[in-house]
Design a protein around this nucleic acid. Structure first.
Lengths: 108, 108
DNA sequence: CTTTCATTTCAAGTTTTATTGAAATATACT
DNA sequence: AGTATATTTCAATAAAACTTGAAATGAAAG
């Protein structure tokens, strides 16, 4: 992950709707969800949802594949992980205070 | 960290200049840097730098304190850590793929 | 090959955010 | 008090992102 990619990812998840889509796709796991299911879940119009999904796709956060008439969107967990690593290492130089928050039993 | 705070933090670090300021303040550590030093380092005008710094301050990422004529800005490492934890736990439900990227020897 | 369903694209208007330079505030020095 | 330094605030402009609804695309079914 480079700076340009990280900036696009941050911009993408700084929208309340898109962050909600991300959380939804985390729960959906590797199966993903169709654009229509996502639209229904977040209560947005199809065109608005499509706009947000292409934003997330351009940011590399999601992948899409057509299944018959529907298009399935899946979260790219590796990209989210790479973003975490970018903050932790490239930005924060492995600062111990920041790093402590990333362990399950961390005092944070 | 709640969703509102996380959204503000993401929006803040989705600007190239502000991400650069964050990295600068990571290296400065607990000493921090004055607004003027930051402006010089990022090559921005004082007013523009001030704008970005108040954005980061509203997002909770930095703290400020006046030292004589200068105002020192410091990164709030705990807030950055809380943001990491928010992505990892609240958003990603501790997904193992994402979590693997947060350990030094992680296969990521 | 027309219809239906799922999704995307487009154009228009609205809102938000960024930039610039000048003026204002706060502190220190003489 | 008056001047210089450091930073912020303000108003105006410019640029980017969001929203809406209508039209277009792609795929399946009759």
């Amino acid at each position: 992950m480079n700076e340009t990619d990280a900036l696009a990812a941050f911009a993408s998840i700084s929208s309340a709707t898109r962050l909600r889509i991300l959380k939804l796709l985390v729960e959906a796991g590797t199966n993903g969800l169709s654009a229509g299911e996502i639209a229904a879940a977040v209560g947005a119009t199809p065109s608005r949802t499509s706009f947000h999904l292409s934003n997330m796709s351009e940011a590399g956060l999601v992948t899409s594949s057509r299944m018959a008439r529907q298009i399935t969107y899946r979260l790219d967990f590796a990209v989210v992980g790479a973003l975490m690593r970018y903050i932790l290492e490239d930005c924060c130089k492995n600062n111990p205070t920041v790093r402590a928050c990333c362990v399950t039993d961390g005092g944070c």
